[in-house]
Design a protein around this nucleic acid. Structure first.
Length: 509
RNA sequence: AGAAGCGUAGCUCAAUAGGCAGAGCAUCCGGCUUUUAACCGGAAGGUUGUGGGAUCGUUGCCCACCGCUUCUACCA
């Protein structure tokens, strides 16, 4: 990185300064006079977790008889001075470890410079392990070195940082101060890693497809628009990778997956961020039934192996979801009848009756809707939020599934499912429509909706139809929203709690 | 985009039907060699989000703006 020394004293605006920062800045000024103020020659040899884990069961006497060296580095998050001896807490990626510092060991000068350190400083500590009289594993320091001076005070030690705006804007402080936040993001990383390994083990190939697309396809959503200067053309940030992944199956890669960002130019909420992470995978010669089986195994394994339990607790702590028993599978019509005892499944097949049922349930039926759309709206209004335990809903109407294969027995519905837990959609999968002529007709239908004013309708993708004309083998594909999956597993109430840097309006300067 | 709520010391929070803005932690000074939200004594710390207005007088009331939170709409 470039040399920042010259700008060091001007990096903060005057009104941003206060006495606490000025005091620390003065300490840094003194440090600069003594040599390199930001040394880079300390290499830790142990982590906090490693040491606690390895020595957890050893008693006080063991350390009195055996010299166990420790060399750790991290942020000093607590400092307790008691005259000629002190305790400090050093936090690294893996956890925290207590350090004991004595004037008798460090000498007058060494102890005085330790006392100059502030909570928040990055330090390197060398010493030997011992156990305190209450049995806490502690490093008795033979040296404490300041590695990075922290100029800004950390939040209060007990309450941490609770102001949501600051937590999201300054996530680095949130991560330092709030252990449960660190834990959530470690779990997110572990879940993603598990998913990646799960698919690689099943001979799926991880690929990357365009983020910037000429035709935003694969979903119905408003895209972000950007501009390519050299080509002087608008491009769309992708709303889904689907059509590119299926082109790869046409190309002969029978099993592909991608874990990457999608962008949708829509509202923000506790369940929506403009950019969000999606897993999509495609498997040739498989059907949507096999993908339901696969989804069930994947989620159960994540629960067992990453979360350590097949019982997952909801964000409000009041509901638990059981991943151990087989997931329920219902068709959309069956689910409507099940959750609305006054509705008979056979009536849903009669368009006129369906319409009046939907209206009786408060659905404002639009004149442009066909029975499929009406059924889906009825489902979303009366069933979706009530699907608590893991549930697959199948037989989505073809009308609302422009990329899914029609069912052989009933061409009005598709071989498609969505997966719900805690009343929220987590996944969407189907046997892929690989009939190029049917696909061309469905694109045409979308174009007509688009022309009629629906700015979320799909564009006609001629190259995609051309690819289908080359031949897409029978294939099933699925998308799983990673953010919502992590929310569900970690009991997060807001999507912002599982995205490291959620979208915020810019701070005023 | 619409509605409701919130914004006070570095952090977590008080306060006044409009009348000198407080506490804990953190900081600074002093004491303390096994503490762990360490403890004890003292000190310092504020343009009450920003800008207008009403008032003898505002953190408080009115208006506008900025930001955040939740809900609704669009959606995953």
């Amino acid at each position: 990185m470039s040399e920042q020394e010259n700008s060091a004293t001007t990096s903060s605006t005057p009104e941003d300064e206060n006495k606490l920062i000025a005091q620390r800045r003065e300490k840094l000024t003194q440090l600069r006079k003594l040599g390199p103020a930001f040394p880079n020659d300390f290499t830790p040899e142990h982590s906090a977790f490693e040491l606690s884990d390895e020595h957890a069961l050893r008693d006080k006497e063991f350390f009195e008889n055996t010299a166990v060296p420790a060399k750790i580095a991290g942020r000093m998050v607590a400092k307790r001075i008691m005259g000629k001896a002190s305790f400090a807490q050093i936090q690294d990626t893996t956890g925290a470890l207590q350090v004991f510092v004595q004037m008798a060991t460090l000498g007058d000068e060494g102890y005085a410079s330790f006392k100059q350190l502030d909570v928040g400083d990055i330090v390197g500590v060398e010493g030997k392990l011992f156990k305190t009289k209450v049995g806490e594993l502690t490093v008795k320091a033979s040296s404490v070195r300041l590695l990075t001076k922290s100029l800004r005070p950390l939040p209060e030690k007990f309450h941490g940082m609770t102001d949501t705006e600051q937590r999201y804007r300054q996530r680095y402080i949130d991560l330092i101060a709030n252990a449960e936040v660190r834990e959530t993001f470690k779990l997110r990383a572990a879940i993603v890693q598990y998913i990646r390994e799960f698919f690689i083990k099943k001979d799926f190939m991880e690929v990357e497809t365009p983020m910037m697309q000429v035709i935003p396809g694969g979903a119905t959503a408003k895209p972000f628009v950007t501009h390519h200067n050299a080509l002087d053309m608008d491009l769309y940030l992708r709303i889904a990778p689907e059509l590119y992944l299926k082109r790869l199956v046409v190309g002969g890669f029978d099993r592909v997956f991608e874990i990457n960002r999608n962008f949708r130019n829509e509202g923000l909420s506790t369940r929506h961020n403009p950019e969000f992470t999606m897993l999509e995978f495609y498997q040739a010669y498989a059907t949507y039934n096999e993908l339901m089986d696969l989804t069930e195994v994947l989620l159960r394994e994540i629960a067992e192996n990453v979360m350590g339990s097949t019982t997952i607790t909801s964000a409000d702590g009041e509901t638990t979801y059981d991943f151990s028993k087989p997931f329920e599978r219902l068709t959309m019509s069956e689910s409507i009848a099940k959750y609305n005892p006054d509705i008979y499944a056979e009536d849903l097949a009669k368009p006129e009756v369906l319409r009046s049922i939907a209206e009786s349930k408060g659905v404002k039926v639009d004149s442009s809707w066909g029975p499929g759309k009406t059924l889906t709206e009825l489902f979303e209004a009366t069933v979706e939020h009530r699907l608590q335990d893991p549930t697959f809903i199948t037989a989505y109407p073809a009308e609302v599934s422009p990329l899914a294969r029609r069912n052989d027995e009933n061409p009005q519905v598709t071989d498609r499912f969505e997966f719900f837990v805690g009343g929220r959609e987590i996944a969407n999968g189907f046997s892929e429509l690989n009939d190029p002529e049917d696909q061309a007709e469905r694109f045409q239908a979308q174009v007509e909706i688009l022309a009629a004013g629906d700015d979320e309708a799909m564009h006609y993708d001629h190259d995609y139809v051309r690819a289908l004309e080359i031949g897409l083998p029978p294939t099933a594909g699925e998308g799983i929203g990673i953010d919502r999956l992590v929310m569900m597993f970690t009991g997060a109430a807001s999507i912002r709690d599982v995205i490291l840097f959620p979208h915020m309006r810019p701070e005023r300067q």
